[in-house]
Amino acid sequence: MTTMLDVANASVSFGGLRALKDVSISAEEGQVTALIGPNGAGKSTLLGAVSGFTRLDEGRVTFRGQDITGMRPHQGVGLGLARTFQDLEVMQRLTVAENVLLGFPDQPAERLSRLLLTPWVANRHHRATVQKTVDLLDHVGLLDRADTLASDLSYGEQKLLVVARLLATGADMLMLDEPGAGLPDVNLHQIGSVLREAVAGGRTVLLVDHNMDLIMNYADRVTVLHHGQVIATGTPAQIQANQAVIDVYFSRSHTAQDPVDEPLTPSQKGAPDAS
């Protein structure tokens, strides 16, 4: 088994608040690695650091043996890493099919030179990409919504759309920020099975979520973050039995599910480090 993604000693602070403190995690090829922890634990920050959206103060990110620390956000897909966002970032005024079509990278039909000088080539490629889009939409069950504006989709459908867009990138490493949050069970298992199929097809998945159903049913390994630090790593079963995790996470799962806008709320910042 080879390590796809390796984050070593990552630290990030935002204006005095340390969102990540010396965090090291890795994701193995062909596995679903889950990152859990209460709100403000630094999960999304870590995802941002890996995908180039957040800058690391210290530490290194290695992907397939190549140092990608300080990568710019748009370079991820070219290297084979793609991500989703917690607030989805669906392109609201584009149709479902258009959203997914944009997921396919390096299309000749978006290069001006190809578009204007060899339009027939661009058109042929474009038809092929649309066909791939149709296939993918069918795969995730959104084909009958293809020409609907993304803003007219339900929340669950939007989450599926985001996953479809992620798959379209063809990246080997898929990183999802809270794909399960706020979803009814039907959609949850739709997403879960799509992810499982992706892994069966050789992709590697890094999952950030609160949803215990999703984690316990679909993750191979789980890392728990709390106050910007790793407090446990193991299989889902090991994590469920881990006393430290039970103390900080499961016992407070109700508060952890509460909607909190800021990654670090003052109350959490000021809370004494009990663990």
Binding site: S51, F53, R72, P73, H74, Q75, G76, V77, G78, A82, R83, T84, F85, E89, V90, M91, Q92, R93, L94, E98, L101, L102, G103, P105, D106, Q107, A109, E110, R111, L112, L115, L116, P119, A122, H126, T129, R165, T169
Partner: peptide, 29 residues
């Protein structure tokens, strides 16, 4: 109109709708 009606036009609209999303999809916005 060729620009507007192609994937190039879609990329432009994508940038209008969500810059982070287009970056995450590999576009240099």
């Amino acid at each position: 109109m060729r620009m507007a009606g192609s994937t190039f036009g879609l990329v432009l609209r994508g940038v209008r709708e969500s810059v982070p999303s287009m970056q995450a999809l590999g576009r240099n916005t």
